[in-house]
């Protein structure tokens, strides 16, 4: 199941991937020298797939996520959304941040509403309804008028999730979403997050998450892309085929963990 540095999407009979990164290379300019961050990275994310990107710190996994988001452009290679290259950010691709990035001077509701206020195609009444619904789904009903400063870390991230849900994206990117939370809170949120994001009622078709927590990856993802230290290359791809909800104490679970650890070291 482990393919070393191989392009995926080769399985016949599976529909075209939603996100497809092909031979991505990225250099950072440091003074006069170019520092390679990513080298020839290819990966895909298809319908109803939860994909994790992992690797040692500094391997460029966050940069890869930002390329997919359209925030930065790769030096070489191309990243496609439904066969069209991603040149800029687009409304079908949404993101959840490690540090929440909420506006502290706005209430939870206004924060969720914020992206929609810039949208001409969504009527205000529709937008409001969507925001209320998103807040309900993440379990923050009755917290609409609370400011982020009065919310706990876990609740702040819930607002972040609601904000991403409310724009009804097709692709959801998550940059170490549980990293700023304490263990117990992160555990709770992880248990809910998969069914919250991937279910027939949401617009989300695929989730791509950056993480360095192996247990979290095995708990959540269908596919794991493991990158090497800088410059990041794909050293392995692991498909995780376990029934949900997953039992962290089970042997197959530990086997997957061991396999990812061995790729990381």
């Amino acid at each position: 199941m482990t393919n070393i540095a191989q392009t995926t999407g080769q399985n016949q009979g599976i529909p075209r991937p939603i996100i497809s990164a092909q031979h991505i290379g990225l250099n950072y300019k440091k003074g006069k020298e170019f520092m390679p961050v990513l080298a020839d990275v290819s990966m895909t994310a298809s319908t109803d797939q939860f994909v994790a990107i992992t690797g040692p710190s500094g391997c460029g996994k966050s940069s890869l996520l930002r390329i997919i988001a359209g925030l930065i452009q790769p030096t070489s290679g191309v990243c496609e959304y439904h066969d069209s290259p991603i040149k800029d950010t687009r409304r079908e691709i949404s993101m959840i941040f490690q540090n929440f990035v909420l506006l502290p001077w706005r209430t939870a509701f206004e924060n969720v509403m914020f992206p929609l206020t810039s949208r001409r195609d969504v009527a205000e009444s529709v937008a409001k309804q969507r925001c209320m619904q998103a807040l309900c789904e993440v379990g923050l009903k009755n917290f609409e008028d609370v400011y982020p400063g009065e919310l706990s870390g876990g609740m702040k991230q819930r607002v972040g999730i609601a904000r991403a849900l409310a724009v009804e994206p097709e692709v959801l990117l998550m940059d170490e979403p549980f990293n700023s939370l304490d263990n117990l809170t992160a555990d709770h949120l992880r248990k809910e997050v998969y069914s919250l994001l991937i279910n027939p009622n949401t617009s989300i078709k695929t989730v791509i998450m950056v993480s360095h927590n192996v247990e979290e990856i095995v708990e959540l993802s269908d596919k794991v892309i493991v990158l090497s230290p800088r410059p990041g290359r794909v050293v392995g791809e692991v498909e995780i085929d376990l029934p949900r909800p997953r039992n962290k104490k089970s042997d197959p679970f530990s086997n997957y963990e061991d396999r990812i650890y061995s790729l990381l070291s």
């Binding site: 930002r66 949404s94 990035v101």
Partner: peptide
């Protein structure tokens, strides 16, 4: 934090 600029771009804030 640079994240806020990303936020504005990701959600295509005018």
């Amino acid at each position: 934090p640079a994240d806020y600029k990303d936020l504005a771009r990701i959600f295509q804030i005018t």
